[in-house]
Write a protein that binds this DNA or RNA. Structure first.
Lengths: 237, 237
DNA sequence: TCGGCCATTTGGTCTGACCAATTGACCGAC
DNA sequence: GTCGGTCAATTGGTCAGACCAAATGGCCGA
């Protein structure tokens, strides 16, 4: 390992780290205003230019937003998972990508599945059965967990993460605004039944059936999505 | 779309953008030193604190490295494609992920391929035939282009980009240091033959054969990679 | 109730000073 | 000829204080 220069922590960096830590710990929440430059300078016992340097670092990191004459406001931290959907791609491209990868995963899972995997799927399906009135957040969590359980059978962290990111991208605020009908009892019932069909196909170690069941599930899911997408598109607001 | 405050370009931001542009255009190359703070202040007709603010922005973006008493050095820009390999994952995880996705792509391509796609694959294989002594960079480019041509048959930008990123991650400097034997005439010949077998399976619209041919190709490629990986691991330096 | 005015507060940029790390030249010892 | 020490110059780091411009909030008259 080549010897590298040991760089001392610069004051602006220390201050930026300190402020970021305060934000991360909840001392200052998103939308709240930080103390003014002069206040920070006084409190921290450092010069105002150095405070400004620290704030610029946080601005570049998209942690704060500086408004002339108004103040320094905490912003929503940038998304942790990568943005997979390019600028020219819409929600359907994402759904088709997901259908493709998830059906390939289901086929592969059907060749590698163990009894422990089947038990894990059963456990999740039981939890889904009991959750028809659990609320959107819990239902989405269970849905994600079921798909991640299948993806984990493949035994590859990169594929697992990619499938998880595709799922997450589906429920980011933009997509959520377009789709608001997943959480009805009927659609949940249908989703659980489709999940069970996937489980059965994987458990019977039939790659073709597993792939087809997953495609069918995601097509149905897409249909439920499209219905609400077209409803949203037809009614401006 | 909610009305947002129109924020005027701050001077430090303008200066940072200008310097980044100079770097991107090759005026200052990686490793080179930028003019000193005082020189930039004089040349740009702005104060030294404002120059410092701009340099801090570039430092946070990982475009420059500032060394006290020495100067400001241009650094390698951060990777454009997302880092797909997690900290706990090694090169084999990446290769297995790639084998999984590329074989699924080949199977799907076999169901969707058109004559134009086949022509494109043939065109690339001809170029590869003629390039056995073209140098590593050109060979890698052709290899990537062949795999991207197949991936584009699937008709999904997200899958295309993911496959491309997996390929690129394979040839980042770390992996390149581990593998230095791809570019021999024999290994190139073998790769071209394997590519041709993939083309034939896709052209014959046989998903099973296409998937198997792609798996075989990547397994052979992995074997060639492993051979040099183990050589590197066995001989420290 | 609303618009105009004004003082205050806020961030933006600047000048100039001084401190500390690095660099390069020079010189003497070996 | 090489190496280590010294020193001056150059470089980035931090600071104090000043002044400018945008935003905010209070007050007042229509």
């Amino acid at each position: 390992m080549p010897i590298e220069a040991i760089e001392p922590r610069r004051l602006y960096r220390q201050v930026a780290d300190h402020l970021r830590d305060l934000i991360d710990r909840g001392e200052y929440k998103v939308g709240e205003r930080l103390p003014t430059e002069r206040e920070l300078s006084e409190k921290l016992g450092i010069s105002r230019p150095t405070v400004r340097e620290a704030l610029i670092a946080l601005e570049v990191e998209h942690r704060v937003r500086i408004r002339v004459g108004s103040g320094i406001y905490v912003t929503e931290p940038p998304a942790q998972s990568p943005i997979l959907v390019g600028p020219a791609e819409g929600p359907f491209e994402l759904l088709r990508a997901r259908a493709f990868i998830e059906s390939a995963i289901a086929a592969e899972a059907a060749t590698l599945v163990t009894q422990a995997d089947i038990n894990a799927m059963d456990h999740l399906l039981d939890a889904m059965e009991r959750s028809s009135d659990a609320g959107t957040k819990a239902m989405v969590g269970l849905d994600r967990q079921f798909h991640q359980t299948i993806a984990s059978i493949v035994g590859n962290g990169i594929i697992l993460r990619f499938a998880g990111d595709l799922f997450d991208q589906r429920i980011n605020p933009y997509f959520q605004r377009l789709s608001g009908h997943f959480e009805t009892a009927d659609t949940w019932r249908a989703a659980v039944d489709e999940h069970r069909a996937i489980r059965d196909a994987i458990a019977s170690r039939d790659p073709g059936a597993a792939s087809a069941a997953m495609r069918h599930h995601l097509q149905q899911s897409q249909h439920r999505f499209s219905t609400s997408f077209e409803e949203e598109a037809a009614s401006p607001g």
